[in-house]
Design a protein around this nucleic acid. Structure first.
Length: 269
DNA sequence: GGAATTTATAAGACTGGCCA
DNA sequence: TGGCCAGTCTTATAAATTCC
């Protein structure tokens, strides 16, 4: 299969994924989380999780888990939070995994949460480090909206990466207000400055804007830099590959060959 | 800002058809 | 049969992408 056809296939799969979400909106949860900077850790441990937000795509009800919330529940003053990071992070992740465990049949819509560096595996790993036994969400219940958008609109065309990632660029293009929303660097700085409420609000805001973007994809109103041809996968190369790859084309060539052979034999005899 | 992963491109190896 | 050429496939490398 040619590369244009592969892209076309991915586009169809992404579209099907979005259709599934649209048909079962109440069974999808939008998830995002914040953590320490990936780069500033010197002792080799993985970055701490600072807050997690999970929003029901249908109802908009949002559950959140954060270090500062855990601190408040345990009556730990903000200035003492760094000394109690392990306890508070563990408490937050206890709540998170209890929540996830009770969401049978739900699927999770996420933005690039796909590896041990940043993703579900990273959260599970942190919980293990803190002595917990994580509940593993099956990969079939995860939908990476960032990848799906690339499949749907094209990797190069749809939105620039910009200084703060594609999510921020997408918000700019669609004029979605980014109030309270921090970029990665700002989130890392907020953690260093113990601004946990800011971090929490940013995470909540991100699941909100992800829902907003998803809603626009489903109703077809999302603005991107992609052309109509990019979105619909109509290019001369695609047409050529469809024609040459399709079994019907082979059949046509075969029949034409037989007819030609018969005609030439008739000419001989 | 770091590093792993993904994607795109280039280069080389291989295969099959054609012709002398 | 051997050499040449074109097309295809595989591998290697480079560039882009990604998260906080």
């Amino acid at each position: 299969m040619g590369k244009e056809l592969t892209k076309l296939k991915r586009r169809r799969e992404a579209r099907k994924g979005f259709d599934d979400i649209n048909n079962k909106r109440d069974m999808f949860l939008v998830i995002h989380y914040s953590c320490e900077s990936f780069y500033d850790i010197k002792d080799g441990r993985t970055p701490r999780i600072t807050s997690i937000a999970i929003r029901n795509f249908s109802t908009g009800q949002t559950h959140s888990f954060s270090i500062h919330k855990s601190a408040e529940q345990s009556h730990v003053p903000v200035e003492e939070v760094p000394d109690r990071y392990d306890d508070l992070e563990r408490q937050m992740l206890n709540e998170y995994f209890e929540f996830v465990k009770t969401r049978h049949g739900y699927s999770f819509i996420h933005w690039n949460m796909r590896d041990i560096n940043y993703g579900f595996q990273a959260i599970e790993h942190r919980y293990k480090v803190l002595g917990g036994e994580p509940f593993i969400i099956d990969d079939s219940r995860k939908f990476d909206i960032a990848r799906a958008l690339i499949s749907l609109y094209g990797v190069a065309a749809y939105v620039p990466h910009g200084d703060f990632g594609r999510l921020h660029s997408l918000l700019d293009i669609n004029k979605i207000t980014a109030k309270d929303l921090l970029n990665g660097k700002q989130e890392a700085d907020a953690f260093d400055n113990k601004e946990f409420i800011k971090l929490h609000q940013s995470t909540l805001r991100k699941v909100d804007v992800m829902s907003n973007i998803l809603e626009r994809v489903l109703d077809g109103s999302l603005k991107t830099n992609s052309t109509w041809m990019d979105v619909n996968g109509i290019h001369p190369a695609v047409i050529i590959e469809v024609v040459t790859d399709h079994w019907a084309w082979s059949l046509v060539v075969f029949v034409a060959g037989v007819i030609g052979l018969v005609a030439s034999l008739n000419g001989l005899f």
